[in-house]
């Protein structure tokens, strides 16, 4: 979830706009009495807004597993026409999409199409997937930039708005916090699932970064012998290979499931999949390799938290 406090309907009370893992943008409208029950933000046809993957509440199942999934939503006046448009962020590949509002804040009319945000003719893409974009003037040049965190690999990135007011153009990512920065026990910092807010925390006039996420680390271990190190490296290569096989198989499965028209057909596909010899072999091998690797590298540790990075 990616809460943004913004007066979305321009009634003088702050609202909460956010994406959730269900694949769509939501809003909780504020009033003099407090915040109301959250609802989906709908497009001009009254339909729920999606990228590809979403949770179908009626049928209680995931749909569109093969494509991008919106888990973040930000209200931002992209074209500077006085009303909020919506940016929808995909967590899997770190893609970003725009839904223009051709109405007003009071009576929004969000487009029914997702327009992909591009950087120099290439899709806007956050390496390792994206948690949520924050729209903020990071470099203080009067144009709103994007600061965002990485999902699987962590890291915090800055996309400079080098366009004009009402016509943003984003430059390729500049790294604010290295994605690979790992930690040892006792000196934790977030290295995956990085949700950021760029704020002047220290009150010294420049923007600092708050990062929610997970610290991942291996416990302190004796250094490995040359032989052990070679074995660990070999196992890591095997692990990556089996992981790639599992991912490939999952992708195929998701595509097949997306085409299944009945629940019986779905169940049949799932049954065939879980009994597939190659898939079974890959998962068994992956577990075995991972177990042996852990005896060498130690058991990976993971802990949630929120960290403050004060700008020097």
């Amino acid at each position: 979830m990616t809460p943004q406090f913004v007066d979305f309907n321009a009634d003088g009370f702050v609202d909460i706009v956010t994406g959730t893992f269900d694949g769509s943008p939501h809003v909780s409208f504020g009033s003099a009495d407090g915040f109301g029950e959250p609802t989906h933000i709908l497009d001009r046809d009254g339909e729920r807004m999606l990228l590809t993957q979403f949770w179908d509440y009626d049928e209680k199942q995931w749909k569109g597993l093969e494509g991008p999934q919106c888990i973040s939503a930000v209200a931002f006046d992209w074209d500077n026409d006085g009303d909020y448009d919506l940016l929808l962020g995909d967590y899997k590949e770190g893609l970003l999409f725009l839904r223009m509002n051709t109405g007003s804040n009071e009576e929004p009319q969000f487009d029914i199409e997702n327009v992909q945000v591009m950087i120099d003719d290439e899709p806007f893409k956050v390496a390792g997937g994206m948690s949520a974009p924050r729209l903020v003037d990071w470099d203080g040049d009067g144009l709103v930039d994007i600061v965002t965190g990485g999902m699987q690999q962590g890291g915090v990135f800055f996309y400079r708005n080098s366009g004009k007011l009402g016509a943003p153009e984003f430059s390729p990512a500049e790294t604010l916090i290295e994605p690979s920065a790992s930690t040892t026990a006792g000196a934790k910092c977030p290295t995956s699932g990085c949700y950021v807010d760029a704020v002047d925390y220290a009150g010294d006039g420049d923007l600092d970064v708050l990062v929610g996420g997970y610290a991942n680390w291996a416990p302190d271990r004796k250094p490995l012998t040359e032989e052990e190190e070679a074995r660990a490296t070999e196992l890591e290569a095997q692990q990556a290979e089996y992981m790639a096989m599992i991912q490939e198989a999952s992708l195929v499965l998701n595509k097949q499931l997306a085409k299944a028209e009945t629940e019986e057909a779905r169940q049949e596909i799932l049954k065939r999949f879980t009994n597939d010899r190659e898939y079974k072999n890959a998962t068994t091998q992956y577990s075995a390799v991972s177990r042996e690797l852990m005896t060498l590298r130690g058991t990976p540790q993971r802990q949630a938290g929120v960290w403050l990075y004060v700008r020097k």
């Binding site: 995956s192 991942n216 680390w217 291996a218 890591e236 692990q239 990556a240 991972s290």
Partner: peptide
Amino acid sequence: AVVAAGSAV
């Protein structure tokens, strides 16, 4: 897999 990869850096 991500955790395992990250821990080596």
